[in-house]
Design a protein around this nucleic acid. Structure first.
Lengths: 207, 207
DNA sequence: AATTACCCGTGAAACAATTCACATTGTTAT
DNA sequence: ATAACAATGTGAATTGTTTCACGGGTAATT
């Protein structure tokens, strides 16, 4: 019985659907059609229905659409947001701080449990409600917090060793903002957000 | 004679290859094999060769590999980095400021020409070398700078109207950090970086 | 109650991306 | 020289993703 039957692309859209559905619900719409969700998600009704099929949801009724709340519940159940996810962040530069602020007062379901840097001048304080430690305390703190997710916002040349350290300490999922791909074992999931690449891509494709 | 023959995925990898090749060159390696580049890019030799085929490059020699410099030049030529790209950014919050700092003292080829916000307390000053104006000056300043790319770092509920304004003013490529898809005409290219979605994805796939 | 219009669920088709596999060719070793 | 090798370039096969199209069912209308 395995779970990786849901393609990554579909997972991405499910996260989006969940947010859009919450907006819908907040507007008082207790039901909706696939074409409405598609319009908000910038895709097609067929895509929406296919995605819901992927998670084994067939609770729509032909003329009435889907029940907003029920659909949200189902997606949450699939994405398994039962527990509050603990995150650790390494690299308290501009981007690291921005992410700390970003998550401090939004994003239910996620808490950044601790942040780390190798620069003493950035540690032993609290930024956006998050305690900042020196890297040497990493192993210790990660045991205390039991975090399973890591965010890397250090310069490229240190990213791999930070990832290695995280994995060593039991981190199972990493979001890497450094502009290089990192090597991780198969049992660790890693995703990269490369802002410069995104801009170069936009520059090229806008040309 | 059109250019959109290169798939977006390939463009992304080309940007990466370019950076990796520069590192290679800096290390004094004047030539390399597809499998070496593949290892650094976390993909396969076949993928590398296929990507180079997409840009019409066939300058490799069977036993000797590719000439690093020549390959870099070819990629740069395809990505067309001849001119310095002017960018405008809207939304001087934590993330906006982080991106301003990020680009101020790195990223050759890109300059953030101006930044904007609707909050008076954030404007009329210089952050990371970038002048910050009130949104009402947007149209005027964009004409002065002749920027063609825009970055959106405002909250979700204002993102669409900011995009509309950008397009109105002649912006052709947009990088959107707000967590909702935006509607833009076909002649404008838009890409989205959704940090929360990325984290939710990592959380799910790491589970 | 029959008719109409609409929308869901899904098999099949179309399309896109990646990987395979091999002919070709330059390099090295004998 | 010649043989053995190693790497390229690419057609074909495979795998993954999106779109099409239609059967079936539900609600509103006549």
């Amino acid at each position: 019985m395995e779970k990786r039957v849901i393609p990554v692309k579909t997972v991405e859209r499910l996260v989006l659907y969940k947010r859009l559905l919450r907006d819908i619900l907040a507007k008082g719409e207790s039901s909706l059609y696939s074409h409405q969700l598609a319009k908000m998600a910038n895709n097609t009704p067929a895509q929406v229905r296919r995605d819901l099929m992927m998670i084994g949801y067939a609770g729509g009724t032909p003329r009435k659409g889907y029940q907003t709340q029920e659909l949200i519940d189902r997606i949450i159940q699939i994405l398994d947001e039962s527990k509050e996810q603990k995150i650790v962040l390494v690299g308290i530069g501009n981007l690291g701080r921005a992410i700390l602020s970003y998550f401090s007062f939004q994003q239910p379901g996620f808490t950044i449990a601790a942040a780390f840097d190798s620069d003493e001048s950035k540690t032993n304080r609290v930024i956006a409600g998050c305690r900042c430690y020196h890297l040497r305390e990493f192993a210790e703190k990660i045991k205390e917090t039991d975090a399973k997710l890591g965010v890397i916002t250090v310069p490229a040349q240190h990213a791999q060793q930070v990832a290695d350290m995280m994995i060593e300490c039991g981190i199972k999922g990493i979001l890497n903002f450094a502009p290089i791909p990192l090597k991780v074992p198969d049992n660790v999931f890693i995703d990269r957000i490369d802002i410069t690449m995104a801009l170069e891509k936009v520059a090229y494709l806008a040309g």
